[in-house]
Amino acid sequence: MKSAYPPAAMAASIQLTVPGTLRYRAIAVRVVAEAARMVSGSNQRAPNDLLDLDVRDPFDTAVVSAFMEIFNNVAVHAYRHKRGGRIHIAITPSTSELVIEVIDHGETFDLEGVPPLPDELDEHSLPEGGMGIHIAKTMLDEVTYEPGPPNLWRLCKRLPANPLASGAGRR
C-alpha cells in the first residue's frame, strides 16, 4: 500500500480494509465518523445508541459527508459495482486535523472531467448528478487524487484555529 505518510505517523493511523462494494459502506462510514469525533471532541447525543451515527458537529459533518461521496465513487466508478475489489482506508487523527487515505485497485477516475455546479441555481437548473465530488471538495480542506494503480484519494479536514468558534467542544 502506498502512503503519503512517514512510518511514525502511519503507526498512529487506523487501518480498515473492506470489500469494494456498497454493502460495506456503512461500516466504513461508522469508523470514519468515530475518528472524526475523536478529533473534533464532539459528544454523541445518545452515546448508548450504537446505531445512531449522530453527525451534527460541523467538523464531523464535513468529514462524514465527504467520505461517503468518495466511498460511493470508488465502489461505483473504480469497481463498477463488481465484487472482488478491496478498499483500503487509512485514517490518521491528530489534535489539529484528520487525514483519510482511500486506496483502490479499480479503474482510474477523471477528477478533472467532473463538471462544476451551475453558477446560478434555480428549479430548472437543479442538478441530478455530479454533486458528490463537489461536496467532498467543498467540505474538506484538501482533496487530492493520484491515479494508480493503486488509485489514492487523500482527504484532509483541519480543525479551525479556535474549535469553540465552530461549536466543537473538547472532552
Binding site: S65, M68, N72, E123, E128, G132, I135
Partner: peptide
C-alpha cells in the same frame, strides 16, 4: 432524516422537478 448523500439529494431533486 439524519444523513443524506448526493444520491439522496438527486432523488429529492427528481421529485421536485417532476412535480413542478
Amino acid at each position: 432524516l439524519d444523513l443524506i448523500d448526493s444520491s439522496g439529494v438527486a432523488a429529492l431533486v427528481k421529485l421536485y422537478k417532476g412535480i413542478r
